[in-house]
Design a protein around this nucleic acid. Structure first.
Lengths: 345, 345
DNA sequence: CTGAAAGCGCTTACAG
DNA sequence: CTGAAAGCGCTTACAG
């Protein structure tokens, strides 16, 4: 283990002061430094293998250049990865680092974790939930730089980014309408959450815009998993006026709907078109035929949150960017949608 | 913003020296401090809302109490969450924090990220891959405290933790054998990776231990996704001597196998038993019937790696714990296995 | 049992 | 264009 090289060592090696070394290595603006000196300092730093000690710098500047991502349940959804990845890459691009903390929905534990983060002089916080939820910001975070990620607060002054559920619902139904479907069932999630409310609103809006009547009997509510989708699809498929297409609250429900359709000898997409939501590759790509679905902008939300958060920390403490932002949910076309058959049930 | 409280403020408030404050707040062992003084210091710290500055402490002690988790592709598998969660919770339990970094399999980028971590004085590294792989430790990490997570090095001196693929394969086949199956096909992954080699070895070992002959014709190789499973299952199911049970390399292949079985009018488990691998809830729980499968110990590997890494950092620099460790893959029983039918094909 | 003081490795007014 | 020096908030020999 070679002993660690300090800025002082570089200064001595280059025959300049530590001030000068600091200035050139940090490219401090407004400091006019002789080109030859500058080159010499850089050469010395390289020769000695100098690695700046950022914790010393942090102590002095009171800035750590690290962000904390606090999430309720990192592991419960496969989406976590994309959101974290978006945040991490955005941070990395700007030379920031990301700490990760999981609260497990326990407020006392959460408070302790935030305390630990604060002790490390973390500069800002991403408060994330693993599905679009309404949350209250924990007291410990009040007044600090924070952005809600895939979550929204009732307090509109707290910046947040969430998916455009309404737009996504519209998109899903529009692709079905465009293929000629008129009897489109919506297999909704029975939980009263932003996603179920928003997607239903999008469903209605799309129908209305196309001049297609809205029928309550075509909307069912069940658990947002495969079993729920199976039950909901069975109910709607066995009803009196069978729909020609299904818009499923999410891909897991679509998985169940595929099973219900198969049991009834209905072939997708010829006998029944299906659109999902979430774009969970493992399902949407794994199903036969591939599931046309609406993607959630997890990567984009993570990246947006970090960019905005760093911006508000770097630029001005009170940034005007702070707002409740909504990101679009794009359609991912696979093979589960086609025109309705000649002889609808 | 109230101005920040330093240890000096606590000392003045309590009427003692900063040395004493530091000693009582850190419970420095071997320091006998008057109980009354101790109480007074604690009361002052609480009254002032003192929050120790860990970066100052880090600068002084050269220890950050933060670990870095470097992974190749955080977002590519749904497992990432559990491994990260295991690592994060283990770290948190000991008062450590976790930084997260993604390399995207780009060595130049990886080198830069490691550099950034080093500048922050990170104490140790978890080098993780998102599926069990053989890796070479990047040069930048050589000589530093590091543990390979779900990855193994050819260099046995580099500690690592991976799943027991062989044991998992055995377990999967044993449950089938115990139900009375003798013609068990193995739908293997065609990639030459530790998982495919290990699970095949487990398959053979289980057959041999049961006195059941190994037939090459019952082992197929295909892509490790749903389409691959579909093709592999179709091939084996349409063959001359149809198996009564399928052991699938992973749950995604099992998903494809379910589809192939359904198309052939084969009911699971009555006409065909199926065992998967990975325990991807979204598939294993979403399928009808639920898929009996073998779980990968992602949470446990993450926690083990952190515990061991912190242990080796805290205790002795050169710990004897360093070894290549293998963790068991437990069976998760659902509903896809039963005794073979009276009239096997 | 308690304290004065050095020092961790930086940045940054300030001076020249 | 360059440098001497203070100070960020801690910990820790060392002394008493």
């Amino acid at each position: 283990m070679s002993r660690t090289i300090r800025i002082k060592d570089v200064a001595e090696h280059a025959g300049v002061s530590v001030t000068t070394v600091s200035h050139v290595l940090n490219d401090v603006p407004g400091k006019r430094i002789n080109a030859e000196t500058r080159a010499r300092v850089k050469a010395s730093a390289a020769a000695l293998g100098y690695v700046p000690n950022r914790v010393a710098r942090s102590l002095r500047t009171r800035r750590s250049q690290v962000l904390a991502l606090i999430s309720d349940e990192i592991a419960t959804t496969p989406f976590a990865g994309l959101m974290i990845l978006g945040a991490q890459e955005a941070a990395s691009k700007r030379g920031w680092l990301l700490m990760l903390v999981n609260t497990g929905l326990d407020p006392a534990y959460e408070a302790r974790e935030i305390q630990a983060l604060l002790q490390r002089q973390v500069d800002g916080f991403l408060y994330a939930t693993m599905y679009h939820r309404e949350v209250e910001l924990p007291d410990e975070l009040a007044g600090l730089p924070v952005i809600l990620l895939d979550a929204v607060s009732r307090d509109p002054s707290i910046p947040s980014v969430v998916p455009d559920e309404v737009g996504g619902g519209r998109t899903a139904v529009e692709v079905l309408l465009a293929s000629g479907h008129r009897r489109i069932a919506f297999l909704n999630n029975r939980d009263d959450i932003p996603a179920s409310r928003g997607r239903l609103e999008g469903y209605r809006a799309a129908l209305e815009a196309a001049g297609v009547g809205y029928h309550q009997s075509l909307v069912t509510y069940d658990a947002s998993d495969s079993a729920g989708g199976y039950r909901a699809a069975a109910a709607v498929l066995d009803g009196t006026a069978r729909p020609t297409a299904l818009f499923c609250f999410n891909d897991r429900m679509a998985l169940g709907a595929y099973q219900a359709a198969a049991e009834r000898g209905l072939r997708i997409p010829h006998d029944l078109s299906v659109v999902g939501f979430d774009n969970q590759e493992i399902i949407a790509d794994g199903l036969r035929p591939g599931l046309t679905t609406v993607a959630l902008p997890h990567y984009e939300m993570g990246a947006w949150a970090v960019d905005t958060l760093i911006g508000s920390i770097d630029d001005n403490p009170q940034n005007d960017d702070r707002a409740q932002v909504v990101l679009p949910c794009p359609l991912v076309t696979r093979a589960s949608v086609t025109a309705p058959g000649q002889t609808p049930g």
